[in-house]
Amino acid sequence: MSVAASHPLDDTTEFATCAFAVRAAGSEPGPLPSGLRGHPGGGRPRTLTVGDLSVVVQSVPAAAFAGDALADRLQDPAELERCVRAHHGVITAAALSGAVVPLPLATLYLDDDRAMAAVHDRREQLSRLLAELSGRAEWGIKVTSVAGPRPSETTPATGSAEMQPVDGHAYLDRLRGRRQAREERQEAELRAAERVLAVVRRAAVAARRLRPQELPPSGGVRQLLNAALLVDHAAEARLRSAVHVLALDRGIAERATVELTGPWVPYSFARLDEEVPDGVR
């Protein structure tokens, strides 16, 4: 191939090939839904076959991705959301007919041949991952602290009235008391979250912690746990009932709420443990 791997898209390139997901070629004919549009301004999402594998791609306008165009677009929250949802929409549609390995947002090739070559070069890793993910889905588990007044933290530890002047020692004692109460509560919340994870983990074949999400500070609650589970389709009912039981558990309900999301395409489990060397010629 004469095109260098680092060849930039330029004005002469009208369309680039955007790759979304790899699946087993055997999952054809699992046609993509006819309403699927992918990124705006592009062609219809379609499938390229590479040996035993297939890759879902879309021809996208090169001008929307070339140079700084993509980076600029992603600076705009609305445009980022649009882009991310378009990507997610194609991948989830591709997953309707079987296991997929999702590719990162805006995985772009100069043309179909280069996209196929990239899949071909990694066919063994991709096949292995597909086998691992087959018959399984990702579920999200989020544990959030419960909002509410904390009498032990708001009433003075010394028991004296707020308005009366207090001496330095009493003041410090009070601060210490509040801090201790807060720390104890936070520890109890985290223990509850860990218990949730330990219980739901039993229904899963793998689990990964995700970074806790930012919640509005005004809500007075914080996310204690954000995790992804890889769950056999056959174990979904077990997972749901485990979450239900946890929500009724007094020790947990007093401190936290548990939310289950999914099923997701297994984004969090379709990773390589180490960086793939840049083997594209």
Binding site: A5, S6, H7, P8, L9, A16, A19, V22, F65, A66, L70, V101, P102, L103, P104, L105, A106, T107, L108, Y109, L110, R114, A118, V119, D121, R122, Q125, L126, L129, Y267, S268, A270, R271, L272, E275, V276, D278, G279, V280
Partner: peptide
């Protein structure tokens, strides 16, 4: 997330 297969961009 998602497996990395190097793209042209």
């Amino acid at each position: 997330k998602g497996i990395v297969i190097a793209g042209d961009i």
